[in-house]
Every structure is written in structure tokens, then in C-alpha cells.
Design a protein around this nucleic acid. Structure first.
Length: 581
RNA sequence: GGUGCGUUAGCGAAGUUGGUUAUCGUGCCUCCCUGUCACGGAGGAGAUCACGGGUUCGAGUCCCGUACGCACCGCCA
């Protein structure tokens, strides 16, 4: 045994004990014939003191050397209240260098040193530091809580294939060439969706898996090409059953990790979320709901508003209390550019202060219109209203983005708050301009609302589903749905998607077949583990909660994956690389 | 596929309207120091200014391209 204690556990009560510690040299302070070393391991830092009789033994010890120290625990005259072990030190009597270290490319002890790029290249060094280490520990804690609760409730963890079959709908697949079947490919799963439904048909009525998923799509601050889902599925269950199980898990996690016990889970229909927040993942830590003011401007002489209404568009308004003084002309110019990213033509605004209006549409609107708007929105002196007139979908989304941005910039968000909401009754389909057909909004196995069954193939635009998301602080934390469990309904959905029975059979044959042999009613969710950990640890960067993440171009700076392979390997697989310019 | 920002000693940054020896902090090395805990003091080494091209008497600085990184839009059933 190398050690009998860790660097985080010794306290005053251990005074006089002879202990052996192992760890990395975090810092040395050489005062001449006395040398202090901060010894670090996963559990913390303990000061090791080398007095005049022993200081020579650490003369050549440098930062990040791995050493084994034996000594006696002593109480310090002046405690260091920044360390859990700050009341004691270990007076070393013996030291052994287990491993040396070159000068590290970043200073481990200074957690602000080095930018993300370098930290990714030397990820194993970054993991020595608290910010990453603590997040990995939270992640471990969360998965443990999930496993415990779900097992208590009779869920069974089943592993599903990583080498699976390409599913043509949805995200781009990562493909793995087959050696035995040249020209054929496995696909890495985008989610275990099909397998978990087959497990339901297999009678595993309560399943879960902490499942790695892969999607070959462009990345974002909250998106990695491989990520982990807490994947769940229940048979003989409805929305209420799965929601209550998820809420139970969330309550346990937030109690254990954050000490929070007053979580609530309000439910908002998709159409209402879009209407009030312009997002299907609204951040409801703050209010500032959008208001439809289209009717106020039906007869307006302001051409922009009038034409918008005449063309079937809408005008959405968003009020910020007491913000007039804080928002400059420059800021509105910036916001005007900001909304263009979301395809909106412009952001109109009015300030109301000292009982007077100013702002971009002040001259364009008549006094009566402005007063009607003020009264309708219950604006008071100091308030600002921002408006977008556009097609419904554009106005909602663009103003929703403004709401989110201003919520952050105006400090309307309580960072200590955790606001969940269920978003329910998503559209069954959405129209793909690119493919010129209706596609599934969720996935093609999602059940429609009972009241919309007769619209499945006839009125796709107004057909809503039993799909739901759980949103937390503006992040989509999970997606799920009640699934179709009857072949006739499934056939209708395929037909609505433009899939002939032959095509459907070719794409999902084995899956469709399975439903012929007794499929129980079932529903489920896939919880985005990284996003949950991000919120729990207060970061907006997914790379912070992944041990070895990829860059925004899906590259690993540490290992240089993906890389080229030997011609032999390609030959085995029957693959020719076509050079592109 | 698109837009924006960035790239200067090991690391993090500064570098003005283009101007002669590229600055600061930290880390690193050497020496001094018996109570530090962001130890202190003295000295030293360390830069193809991302890469390629252009403008200019002269480019870290201006222009074009490339690479890489970050964020966003599209995309992510």
C-alpha cells in the first residue's frame, strides 16, 4: 500500500499520528532551510513541511512531481482557512519521488491559467484541477442517484447495441464500415429509441440505460457529437406515469447535489410556449411574456405594421419594466441586427418616460395608437416595449430570442433558481421545405393526441402529438413521447410522411414486424445527462462536463482523432478514399 | 453551408495614426532567506508576432487567402 490517508482528510483530531500521503506537488515554498509543499490529490491539499533536517530531501522536487511522504500530523500555529485541511500540516520525515514531471504547459495550481484550446490538448492536466474534477464528480453522483432510484422502482438497466442500423430519418449517422460485408455499414445509435421500444415488446416493462448516443451534426456550446442520455421507457404507462418518475429522479438529484427541495414542474402546451416565450424551451426563471398586439394595428397608417397584418403576419410585443434608462440607441441598433439572424426584418421599440414616447417607431405611429399600446400592455414611466412584425413563426422566435438575451443582460434571471417546465402537445409534423414533405417533429413512432387521430393523414399542419419535453432554465433537458403501439396507426403516420408501405418496410421492417406480435402501450424519455450536469454545476459549456470532449469541429485536440489510417486497414474494408480539392 | 470574433516567449495578456532594441504579469532556471500558505528578495534565459501572399522606403499593426479555436444561424427525427 502506498498511502494510508488522502490529502483531503486530515484534521486537528489527527494530531500526532504518523501518516503516509501520496500526491502531486501543487506548490513549493522554499524559505531556505525550511520548505513547504502543497501536496494534492483528488481529495484535496495538505501542507507538508520539511524542516532543516529534511529540506535537503526535496531540493530537486518540482511542481507536479508525484511523491510519497511520511510524517507526523501537527497542528499549525496559524491555520489556513482556505483549505479544509488548513488547521494541520504534516512534518515530513521521509519522502520518495514516485514520478518526475517536466514543466507543465499550464499551471495546475492556477485554475485561471490557460485557454480552453490548451486545456483540451492537455485534458489530463486540466482534470487535475478543481473545475473539471468537481464536475466529473457531480456527474458520477447523478448517475449513481439515477441508478439507485430507478432500480428501487423496478427499472432494469439493459445495454443496447453501439453497432446498430442506420435510421434514415433524423440526424446524420456516424457510420462504421463492415469488414465482413464490404460496402455495408453499421451506424452508431443516435439514441437507443428502436431498441428500447423492442425491449417493451420483449416484456422488459421498465427499462433504463445510461446510453452513449452519436449524432454527426454541427456542434454548439451545448452539443457534442457523442453524448449521454439517461434513457427510460415504461410499458402500461401514460404521460403521467413517466412524468412522475422523472420528477422523482429530478427531485432526488437536486436535493442531493444542490440541497434544493422546492422544485415545481408546471406544464405548458407547445403552442402556449411559442406564444408567450417564442421558444419550445422557455426560460421561465423570469416573466416578461410576449403579448400579441396585432389587433391594435389592423387599421394603422404605419405601412410596416399594416402590411404585415394584411399579409397574415402578427405583431408581438415584449415589455421590460424600468429599462428605458439602461437601453441606449446603440443597444437597439445591436438588437436590430440581432433579430435579423432569426430572419426578422427589424426590431421596433418605444420608450415611455416622463409621460412621453420616444424610439424607433415613435414618429411612425399616431399618438392614439401609442397610448392604446401603452394601456394594453400596462406600461408605466420608464418602461420599454420591443416589437416585431413578421410572419408568426419568425416574429415569435425572433422576439423570443430577444427576451432571452435581454433577460440575461438586464439581470432579470436569478442564477440560484431552477425552473422546470413540461412542454406538452408538440406538433405531430413539421413541413420540410428542403424535402418538400411533412416530416416527424419528434420521431415517426410518436402517438398523436386522441383528438387528432382523424387528422393524421388529412390535416398534418393541425395535428398534435403526445410528445413532451422537460425544460430547465431554458435548456431542453429531455424529450419523450407516448409511442404508437398499434400497426394501423403506425401505417397511417408513415403514409402521412409520404412513406409507402414498401418504403416503410425497407427502412423499419424489423421494427414494424415486432408490433405484429403484441406490443404493450408504452412511453419514455431520454434525458440529456450533460445538460443536466451543466445546469447543476453552473456552466454553459458542455465541454466542461465531458471528460474528453471534442472541439466545435468535432476534433479531439488531445488525441488528434479523427485520423488517417493505413492503406491495409482500408483494403480490409474495401474502401477507396476519393481525394477532394 | 453561412456570419462574426480571435491567433504576439511555456502560459495569460498589452502593443496608439505603419517607424527603428516588441512590453507586462506569471511560469521556468540560479542564488539568498526558519513559518510560508498568491511567501519574500536579487539575477537570468526564453518570441519564425499562426501560415502563405500583397501594399509600403518600412508591417505585430493595413489588404487578400489558408489553417486552427470560439460563439451563433442553418442543421440537431
Amino acid at each position: 500500500m502506498y498511502r494510508d490517508h488522502t490529502c483531503g482528510e486530515l484534521r486537528k483530531t489527527d494530531e500526532g499520528k504518523t501518516v503516509t500521503l501520496c500526491g502531486w506537488v501543487s506548490k513549493r515554498r522554499n524559505l531556505g532551510s525550511i520548505v513547504f509543499i502543497d501536496l494534492r490529490d483528488r481529495y484535496g491539499i495538505t501542507q507538508i513541511t520539511f524542516d532543516e533536517n529534511n529540506s535537503e530531501k526535496v531540493k530537486d522536487v518540482r511542481n507536479e512531481y508525484v511523491i510519497k511522504v511520511t510524517g507526523k500530523v501537527a497542528v499549525k500555529e496559524n491555520a489556513n482557512d482556505k483549505l479544509a485541511t488548513g488547521e494541520i500540516e504534516v512534518i515530513a520525515s521521509d519522502v520518495e519521488i514516485l514520478s518526475t514531471s517536466e514543466t507543465t504547459p499550464m499551471i495546475i495550481a492556477d485554475e485561471t491559467d490557460a485557454l480552453e484550446e490548451l486545456r483540451l490538448k492537455y485534458r489530463y492536466l486540466d482534470i487535475r484541477r478543481n473545475p473539471i474534477k468537481e464536475k466529473l464528480l457531480v456527474r458520477d453522483k447523478v448517475t449513481m442517484i439515477v441508478r439507485n432510484i430507478l432500480h428501487e422502482d423496478n427499472f432494469v438497466e439493459v445495454e443496447t447495441p453501439i453497432l446498430s442500423k442506420s435510421t434514415p430519418e433524423g440526424a446524420r449517422d456516424y457510420l462504421v464500415p463492415s469488414r465482413l460485408y464490404k460496402g455495408k455499414f453499421y451506424a452508431l445509435p443516435q439514441s437507443p429509441q428502436i431498441y428500447k421500444q423492442l425491449l417493451m415488446i420483449g416484456g422488459m416493462d421498465r427499462y433504463f440505460q445510461i446510453a452513449r448516443c452519436f449524432r454527426d451534426e454541427d456542434l454548439r456550446a451545448d452539443r457534442q457529437p457523442e453524448f449521454t442520455q439517461i434513457d427510460m421507457e415504461m410499458s402500461f404507462a401514460t404521460e403521467e406515469d413517466i412524468w412522475s418518475e422523472v420528477e422523482k429522479v429530478m427531485k432526488a438529484i437536486f436535493k442531493e447535489v444542490k440541497g434544493i427541495t422546492d422544485l415545481t414542474f408546471p406544464r405548458i402546451k407547445y403552442v402556449d410556449a411559442m406564444d408567450k416565450y417564442g421558444s419550445d424551451k422557455p426560460d421561465i426563471r423570469f416573466g416578461n411574456e410576449m403579448v400579441n398586439v396585432t389587433d391594435l394595428f389592423k387599421e394603422s397608417n404605419f405601412a410596416v405594421f399594416k402590411n404585415c397584418v394584411a399579409e397574415g403576419g402578427i405583431i408581438k410585443a415584449l415589455v421590460f419594466k424600468n429599462a428605458a434608462a439602461n437601453l441606449s440607441r446603440k443597444k437597439f441598433d445591436e438588437l436590430n441586427e440581432f433579430v435579423k439572424v432569426y430572419k426578422a426584418k427589424a426590431l421596433a421599440y418605444l420608450k415611455y418616460d416622463n409621460n412621453e414616447f420616444t424610439g424607433s417607431v415613435n414618429n411612425a405611429l399616431e399618438q392614439g395608437e401609442k397610448e392604446a399600446l401603452r394601456d394594453y400592455l400596462k406600461m408605466e414611466n420608464g418602461d420599454v416595449v420591443m416589437m416585431i412584425a413578421d410572419k408568426k413563426a419568425i416574429a415569435e422566435v425572433a422576439l423570443g430570442a430577444v427576451r432571452k438575451k435581454m433577460g440575461e443582460e438586464l439581470g432579470l434571471i436569478d442564477k440560484n433558481k431552477f425552473a422546470f417546465c413540461w412542454i406538452t402537445e408538440f406538433p405531430m409534423y413539421e413541413y420540410s421545405e428542403e424535402e418538400d414533405r411533412w416530416v416527424s417533429a419528434h420521431h415517426p413512432f410518436t402517438a398523436p393526441r386522441d383528438c387528432d387521430i382523424d387528422k393524421l393523414t388529412t390535416d398534418q399542419a393541425n395535428c398534435y402529438s403526445r410528445a413532451y419535453d422537460l425544460v430547465l432554465n431554458g435548456y431542453e433537458l429531455l424529450s419523450g413521447s407516448v409511442r404508437i403501439h398499434n400497426s394501423e396507426m403506425q401505417a397511417k403516420v408513415f403514409s402521412a410522411l409520404g412513406l409507402t408501405p414498401e418504403k416503410a418496410k425497407a427502412k423499419f421492417g424489423f421494427f414494424i414486424d415486432a408490433f405484429k406480435y403484441g406490443a404493450p402501450p408504452h412511453c419514455g424519455v431520454g434525458i440529456g445527462l450533460e445538460r443536466l450536469i451543466m445546469i447543476l454545476t453552473g456552466t454553459d459549456n458542455i465541454k466542461e462536463v465531458v471528460a474528453f470532449p471534442k472541439t466545435a469541429t468535432a476534433y479531439c485536440l488531445m488525441s488528434d482523432a479523427p485520423n488517417t489510417v493505413d492503406q491495409d486497414q482500408l483494403d480490409f474494408l474495401g474502401i477507396d478514399i476519393v481525394k477532394q480539392d
